[in-house]
Design a protein around this nucleic acid. Structure first.
Lengths: 143, 143
DNA sequence: TTAAGTCAGGTGTATATACACCTTATTTTT
DNA sequence: AAAAATAAGGTGTATATACACCTGACTTAA
């Protein structure tokens, strides 16, 4: 495997796989009208409880302003809301009951897609992939 | 590693790593005013010679129409051109000498970023990552 | 040999991504 | 306590991504 060949670019291959897998999950979520990005955001807010945008963005390795835009369709549809905070600079995000319902509908679809990917890859390979991805985030992120 | 925990979503973690690595490479390319997506496209066309859009899109696991939009800034800047084909449905894409020059300027920056990632990850892990990514594309793509 | 089918590619729209720049609110300095 | 610094978040703009739908060109079937 030649490190110096542009076809082996780490970023190119990550983005390529990212597109492939996103298409796969988005297809699975069609019946509930969510995209995988939106599902992940809903699940994240549901699990982390009300959270500030900076915290969410940092966890997702996502620019703060990208998160703002990604939240919009979910807030517009009433799945998430901006709540009050003592520190009035913060606008914490919380999930609504509407959001929880939609998430509950989406969960089985997610499980099926996830299980199919793990089965197709083989569990060993999948575990290795997730570990490498985590290491890759660390290897390219400062602070 | 629990397959059924949404934080372990294959897609979420791929997209996360994709963002992290894209930010890393984009930073490296700043001096030549390219993004990693644009660099990869230039390098691909340079290596594959004039190629139809369908072929390029398939290789990249990218929607045809996404490729159309991604080519635009490169064509506008004169790095790539649309050339004639016997089959007038096709609009093959070729690299210009301007494009080759820019690519040559970008290559050392790419090598440095790529080498840093491989070094930070460790060569073994990196090879494993690229293999898993390739397997993942196969595991999620029909055709 | 023309009509139907297929194939390459583009456009409209919506979301995803991030940089530069701006506003408002809290915290720290002097 | 007022000024300076910092912190949280939004907006304008440009690229990245893909679906639905459209056009024009070749191919195949009647």
């Amino acid at each position: 495997m030649d490190v110096e060949t542009t076809a082996n670019c780490t970023c190119l291959n990550l983005r390529k796989a990212s597109r492939a897998v996103t298409q796969f999950y988005d297809e699975a979520f069609k019946p509930v009208g969510l995209r995988v990005t939106q599902f992940s955001l809903l699940a994240l807010v549901a699990n982390k409880g009300p959270a500030g945008m900076k915290e969410l963005a940092k966890f997702l390795v996502m620019d703060r302003t990208t998160l703002t835009r990604n939240l919009k369709p979910l807030i517009d549809q009433g799945f998430l809301v901006v709540i009050k905070s003592d520190d009035r600079r913060q606008r914490p995000i919380a999930i609504t009951s509407r959001g929880r319902n939609r998430l509950a509908q989406a969960l089985p679809l997610w499980r099926e897609a996830q299980n199919r990917v793990v089965a197709n890859l083989g569990r060993e390979t999948w575990v290795g992939l997730l570990q490498s991805l985590s290491a890759t985030v660390s290897a390219t992120t400062h602070e």
